[in-house]
Nucleic acid binder design. Structure first.
Lengths: 270, 270
DNA sequence: GCGTATTTGTACGTATGTATG
DNA sequence: TCATACATACGTACAAATACG
């Protein structure tokens, strides 16, 4: 009974899609329907969807199929599963981590280099200076000052060096978080996220790090100063230089043929 | 037997992740292991992974769990399932569509506007001019000419207007496909992909379209001419103007509060 | 704090469609 | 054409997590 329904559905969709696209999986179709259902209902993050049992009757599919559809949406970062009473799939906005993951996968297979990343990063970070100016409040400026303070303390062991490098990256995401353009923020987070993961392993070239770190702190301080007086041009110029230097240093540390084995390390944010 | 092993594993990971992160699902853990296995083995697109049955014994998990793990990797665009003999999960590179999907989801929930998209698009497309110059071969120039030709034919019905708009977008992806920096190409494809989906529905403001389309064709032709003589500066200037005009027109057509309900339409590339 | 109910997570068995050779 | 290997789908059962009385 159910099998005939299934068979018919598949044959039908196969006919429609002809030769071009393979017969879509039932779970993917259901996932798409749930997706558009989320849109048409205008669901916001936090809202909950019907539980598995209801979906089974609604779509006339087995639990495994429904679960697979929900899994697809979960991996895409659209929903999150919650156990217990009043549980079920709940809408979760953003999907920043999923974007980072997807782009990281791309970088792995396409053999993206440090040069490639910095060509893009430089462009976007410079644009950020123009877009963010005038949108940073006092509290954020204080946080930026603290971050710079943290970066200027000389690091001696590998662990503190890593924390310092993370703080240096965080400086950029803090600024980006102030920009009204959320898409610009996402791009910064994606690129910085890739770099954080790429440089997460302990690095060679310890002796380089100290000097570079001091130079970074100077640039960060100067950029903040320029942003304080809302001087976008200067901030942009400094950022461009800052990116060029970072690019040079990272290239010295990691060489040309990097980002391959480093890109795919799972975020594990479950 | 398997249940005790399972229980211990879960307890172990729960202890490690403490309170910060929720107890990860077993399928996600396995997905991560497969992911890093792909890296360490240095698998390329087209290579095949062990079939489900082998994974069941290798990980000591049930079929459902393995399938869920593979589903995760499939949605992330890392593998593709193949039925039949010599089938099983095979590695598939790229994951361009997955990146587009993820960013689209983000745009939906974060209420990204036309202004936001064009601020970023303008920056990246202008950068593209500098990066792509000297990397376009004759055959591609011919394709670009053909594309411009196609765009300059006046469109009368809604269907041909849509095809024309798609051709106009394709012009940009053709140029982008020549850039050595694959990450830059990805970004262009993501942004253009979002715009294509956003403008896929039939639009109001038909009367605007004709004039705009002619202007587009002129700019496209001028940009190609500049790229032919490897004049990056002129190409960049033209592209910036072209973007400003496109931004103005799209804003007239769709207004300020767009991209919400349009962003989440599933690509359905299965 | 403690059971209890609800809902997801995991597991096993089986049937069927589908592509390869 | 037929057999074979594999994913896809269904059904059932139990374990684990969480909210609520």
């Amino acid at each position: 009974m159910t099998s005939t329904q299934d068979g018919e559905g598949r044959k039908n969709s196969r006919r429609l899609s002809h030769l071009l696209t393979r017969t879509p999986k039932r779970s993917s179709v259901i996932a798409g329907e749930i997706r558009s259902w989320i849109i048409t209902e205008g669901l916001e993050p936090g809202d909950s969807l019907p539980v598995e049992k209801e979906m089974i009757t609604a779509f006339g599919a087995s639990r495994a199929t429904i679960r697979e559809a929900l899994k697809e949406l979960e991996v895409q970062g659209l929903v999150r599963m919650k156990t217990g009473p009043n549980g079920g799939p709940i809408v979760t906005g953003s999907s920043v981590l999923e974007s980072i993951q997807a782009v990281q996968n791309f970088c792995y297979f396409e053999k993206v280099t440090i040069d490639d990343i910095y060509e893009l990063r430089s462009t976007i970070e410079v644009q950020l200076m123009y877009s963010v100016v005038g949108h940073i409040d006092e509290e954020t400026f204080d946080r930026l000052d603290a971050q710079i303070e943290l970066s200027s303390i000389p690091a001696h062991d590998e662990r503190s060096r890593r924390r310092q490098r993370e703080a240096e990256f965080e400086f950029h995401t803090i600024i980006a978080s102030c920009v009204p353009n959320r898409l610009l923020l996402l791009m910064i987070e994606v690129i910085v996220g890739i770099l954080v993961n790429a440089t997460a392993r302990e690095s060679a070239a310890h002796e380089l790090h100290g000097e570079w770190s001091r130079e970074n702190s100077r640039y960060h301080a100067d950029i903040v100063a320029a942003l304080r007086r809302e001087d976008a041009e200067t901030a942009a110029r400094l950022m461009r230089e800052h990116m060029e230097i970072a690019h040079r240093h990272l290239k010295l540390m990691y060489g040309d043929l990097s980002l391959e084995a480093i890109a795919l390390t799972a975020p594990e944010r479950n």
